[in-house]
Nucleic acid binder design. Structure first.
Lengths: 106, 106
DNA sequence: TTTATATGAAACCTTTTGGTGTTATGTCAA
DNA sequence: TTGACATAACACCAAAAGGTTTCATATAAA
């Protein structure tokens, strides 16, 4: 899987430590903004901006539920980035690479 | 493998499309700066800055050779980022996840 | 030794990023 | 219906990012 121009929003989303922490947090289940913001030493608008960038990257989807907006992780976007990185896994993991190609061609 | 503060320089290095292109380029073998810069519509100092950021992230190492400086890919740093992302692979690849745990415990 | 080449390094500029505070809006609950 | 709550939507700011041009320095080659 070659480097694609389309990957940019995902990698941008991953570039900030706060956003990676949000990703990890949402992997335990969806949450509203205020709930997320409570975990950080940062104002809610700042978190809202991070969520907007995560959404642009397709990393989360947002669903309105009454007056709350539920943020849900969309792992497929992470797979995009993982796929690109795993292109290089021949450099560090020959055993796994061999197995993977076996599985994928079966 | 949990999100680590230590990962930041690597993810920062990956955030720019030019730098990802350089990474892909160096995966075919080490190159001097001018050689890399020739492939981009950008001045050499700009490329030099990107290389500095890649080096900060541990993604490349630089070795002086006469008046040239050879830039060599260091895949281990990429593994750091890949490991973090692959933490989420249970969401998209159950078959591979199962196999992986099998391999890793053998 | 002179000249060309490969790079480093500094000064500068514009845009983006990551924050803040404030105000407006829609929804739930008393 | 009134008040509290969850969020959106500014306007604003400082610092970092991503470029540029210019100049200095070290090495190779003529």
């Amino acid at each position: 899987m070659p480097a694609s121009h389309q990957d940019q929003p995902v990698f941008r989303a991953l570039a900030d430590p706060t956003r990676r922490a949000i990703i990890a947090m949402l992997s335990d289940g969806p949450r509203p903004i205020a709930d997320i913001a409570a975990e950080f030493d940062m104002t809610r608008p700042a978190i809202a901006k991070h969520l907007a960038i995560l959404k642009e990257g397709g990393v989360i989807s947002v669903e309105a539920q009454g007056r709350e907006r539920i943020n849900r992780l969309n792992p497929q976007a992470l797979k995009t980035a993982a796929d690109w990185l795993n292109t290089f896994d021949r450099f560090w993991d020959d055993r796994l690479a061999a197995l993977k190609s076996l599985v994928e061609t079966s």
